[in-house]
Computed example of a mutant assay.
Amino acid sequence: MKTRLNLKPLAMLTLLLLGPALNTGAWAHEGHDDGDAKKAVLVPGNAPLRLPDGTVFLPKSAQRGMGVLTQALVAADLPRTLELPGRVIMDPHVGGRVQAMIPGRIEAAGPHGLPAAGSKVKKGDILAWVVPASGAIERANQSALQAELKASLGLAERRLARLRELADTVPKKDIDTAESDVASLKGRLAAVSGGLSGREALVAPVSGVLAASNAVVGQVVEPKELIFELIDPDSLHVEATAFDPIPLDQVAAATVAVGEGSQQQAIPLSFVGAPRRLREQALPLIFENHAAGAGMALPLGQPVKVQVKLKSTVSGLPLPASALTRNTANQIVVWVKTAPERFEARPIRSEPLDGVRVLVTDGLKAGERVVVQGASLIAQIR
């Protein structure tokens, strides 16, 4: 009698042993003994993975969790751009400074105290008072002069009164002389008294917003000391610095980036002009923007990168700057979507465009989909 062998448990055991090898793609093609053979790669599960060829496998669920967004590239002819260092400066037409003319002590101008930085003021508003400061000897001399003038004024007034009583017998010119002496003494006495008890008003020269307030009640200030600085909230001026020669007739406009990440935007600037005098071996270029709230976008003195647009054009692929990242070799790369769940790092050459975008001139083709959000997260996958 022949015994039948049950092969079902044996087959199951074989699958269990060979399962890991199947999942990891450990099978080689025929002819694996030659040097150019390729191994079949099977992606395990739904976890992000850096594959042996350098590409990244990223499932759809992981793409949604990481917020990965892609954009199709479109070729365009755009103005050539130069990136220059710059800083925000005051608009001299609508900005102003308030400085002390005399040495003294700061006093508040109203019941609400001194205005704080960021407050809105109108032209002609009194921002503070400066009480003159003088030494003991100077005040003593002024007090003595004041007493002398008071005595002289009393004598002149009594003399004028007597002459008016004798108006019928006294020449008219004597009365006029006495009246002139009284008026002169009154003026001199008022000037001396004002010097002892008067104060200087710090008045707003223009309407706007206080960009800086360096005043504190009781503070002692010197002549020409800056107390307040005002700007127009609707005016922005930027000074770019060019260390290399630039054809000024080719400068068309400029932009400066404001914000970070997805909130970043480019503020357009119009070219005002450039002085014909170097400053610290560099040529300053002045740009401006007049729009609602433009002056509040960047504080005075803020260093910025100015993207100066020239009239000449260059062909390329515009791309958000957030798409650029660096690989382990410190090369600038972008991640190209080659398949629904496959991404490839591609080295590129680019030029600055407007502070928010760059112009890719080499390494990509029109129509390819590039990661514009989440590129740095994909680069971290190992």
Rank of each mutant, 00 (worst) to 15 (best):
R139T: 05
N46V: 09
A40Q: 11
S312V: 01
A240E: 06
E288G: 10
V221K: 06
S350C: 14
G195W: 04
A178R: 00
A147R: 13
T328H: 08
E200W: 05
L7V: 14
R97W: 09
P299M: 13
E351Y: 04
I227N: 02
L353Y: 03
D244G: 09
L58K: 00
Q307P: 08
Q373I: 04
D244Q: 12
K2R: 14
W27P: 07
A151R: 13
E200C: 06
M90I: 14
Q71D: 03
A252G: 11
E229Y: 07
S180I: 05
R326I: 15
Q302S: 15
D77I: 00
E138Q: 13
L278C: 07
A117Q: 08
F271L: 04
L210E: 03
E280R: 13
V216F: 10
P205I: 05
N23E: 15
A379I: 11
L230H: 03
P347W: 08
G187L: 01
S180C: 02
K60D: 12
L17A: 04
F343A: 00
F243A: 06
E157K: 08
V360R: 00
I231T: 12
V88F: 15
P52R: 13
E107L: 13
R4I: 14
V272S: 09
G195L: 02
A204F: 04
T313C: 00
G25C: 01
Q99K: 12
S213V: 08
D362A: 11
T361C: 02
D34V: 15
A254Y: 01
E148A: 08
A339K: 06
L127T: 10
Q281V: 09
R277V: 07
A294P: 06
G374T: 02
A212F: 09
